[in-house]
Amino acid sequence: MRKEIRIAGFGGQGIILAGIVIGRAASVHDNLFAVQTQSYGPEARGGASRTEVVISDSEIDYPKVQLPDIFVAMSHEALITYLDGLKNGGILIVDPDMIKEEEILPFVEKHNINYFKASATKTAVEKIGLGIVANIVMIGAITKATKVISEEAARKAITESVPPGTEAKNIAAFEAGMDLIDGR
């Protein structure tokens, strides 16, 4: 099993932390192997932000994402930039309030994409009262939609990765994110 995940959006959305939490959950708590990488440089500040995670049940040799199985887009720009890279039949999760859906529907249909919508930003603001936890809401959605990490591992990794004192809010954000995905 080798799963390649790409998460992209813009700076300030906590994109990188989302990648770290998923990698940590998979490797430290689910006993799998994971490599997390990210885009560096001036372009990563304020502009576009991207992280990639490879998860596998055996040691990971080649560490980079080539053809993602899962693509999570938290901005329209990121969605358009990287959509083409998504594998046929892959999973796409978007924050519907941040994108123009009509531009991607033909691609979704043509490539048999497993398409999910998770209003992470809106949920973070309206349900949790904290816009900055949108990334954690999205982790909830990713966990539920892809099962690439276990719910338990995700909870542990979030608790370890967020600032002390904010654990409860972040776990609430995670749960709210899980609820955004139908239980199919």
Partner: peptide, 9 residues
């Protein structure tokens, strides 16, 4: 840079 910046267990 790759090994220095990547995260692994």
């Amino acid at each position: 840079e790759i090994i220095g910046h990547m995260r692994e267990k």
